[in-house]
Amino acid sequence: METLLYLVFGLVALVGGVLVIVNRNPVYSALSLVLTMFAVSALYILQQAYFVAAVQIVVYAGAIVVLFLFVIMLLNLGDQGNLPAASGTRRFVGALLGVTFAGIVGAVVWEYASTAGPAAAAAGDIDHTKSLARVLFQNYLLPFEVVSIVLLAALVGVLALIRTHGRGLDSSEADNV
């Protein structure tokens, strides 16, 4: 029963991934991406990583893809948004490389998965948000702080990047919106 769910959601994730690439319209690509996100989130839930699943939705679906959509619409690309796919050669090379890569990775995964035993016993503790927080803020406190600095840097970087000289942000951007 559970394995069926794994298969279904895995399949949905892959279909979403394929659609991201196949769709010519970036808006559809973004929506396909959301589909994948949901499917992956479902896989997290199946593996009892509830908190990660929720955060996955909040961050990826709720923020990141919305940002994508926001930019797509802000640029208002019109026909330009529907760029034709790359040339035949590039498609071929890309596909070839991808298939080779997938083959190798698949072989590795298969080898590993077939030798791996059943899931470890401590799984009961995995779903607990508190234990997650404890590990995060004790064992990984320094990386956590570093990540916060990275985010700050990104914030400053974005401001520096989109600054237009001589024009305030409020007037120009706000008017467009």
Partner: peptide, 20 residues
Amino acid sequence: VQTYAALILAGAVVLLFVKG
């Protein structure tokens, strides 16, 4: 950029292959 990415991937593939 994609050319570079493709080259990186090709390198990764070769490395993985050799490792295998």
